[in-house]
Amino acid sequence: MSFDWIKLLGFIVTPLIASAVGFTYMGLSRKITARVQNRIGPGISQSFIDVVKLYSKKTAINHGLMQHMGPVFAITASITTLLFLPVIKDSIFFANFSFRGDLIFLIYIMVFGQLGMALGAGQTGNPNSAIGVSRGLSQMVGFKVPYVMALVAIMIHAKSTNLQEIIAVQDGFRNWMVFQMPLASLAGLLAYLGYMGYAPFDVPFAPAELASGPPSEFGGKYLALMMTSRSIFTFAKLVLFVDVFFGGASNFIELLIKTFLLYLFALFVGLVNPRFRTEQSIQFWWKWPTAIGALALLLVAWKG
């Protein structure tokens, strides 16, 4: 097997682009939140400034090896998730590691970062971290059910577990998965709200009641690593949902438009909603989205 230089370059460039886009979206979300609250708000580059400041902190205290490793696990999982996604349709440069069973692999690897963070936060010994971790993992159990149901329905419908083939099925605007499989897409997009962690599903990170939850004992470079990981992971999630439900993107501008609209969806839902308690959000996901996902599975199995 010959060594592919183009692909190697892609592995390096993709996470850089992803973190740049992720930080820009985070800055835009702060600006949009400010405008909704009738404020002026910070500039779009505020997230970049914050992360540079955190990286330039002169001290970073850790309480042991696991806290040291937690953010590293998180950023590893984020970059791995991103590298298995076909970011741009039919592009060798951005296809990276995409292979035959990548959608199944992604379902597993996307949990890894949160588990790493949970381990790291567990060692800090802060009770707020422990509560935040337990809430976050409970919520994950909640939204994973409709999410996996939606993805399995789509895999059966497209007769493939490869993201590139799933994108190829959705050729043209009317063949997007949201129109081909409306029920599965609805379940998947409701689960997506939980993935993004905005209100009403932001109880694991609630700053006012939990002192920001799992990262409450992380400062300096550890927090900077976590923020970088979050920016990459946000972009990876958006690309995954655009690939599965909105027909992928054939160039970078289309990708930016689609991912930003999807990001705005989660942001606007978050801006107008108060916060669910953990059991309320789990009840929410196990009621309607799960029922819709089960119906989608039944329909796709009945159609064959």
Partner: peptide, 17 residues
């Protein structure tokens, strides 16, 4: 609106400047 100047509140001393 102190966030114009990049000033935001943080809940824990580890994160704060």
């Amino acid at each position: 609106d102190a966030e114009r100047f990049g000033i935001t509140g943080r809940p824990t001393p580890r994160m704060a400047d």
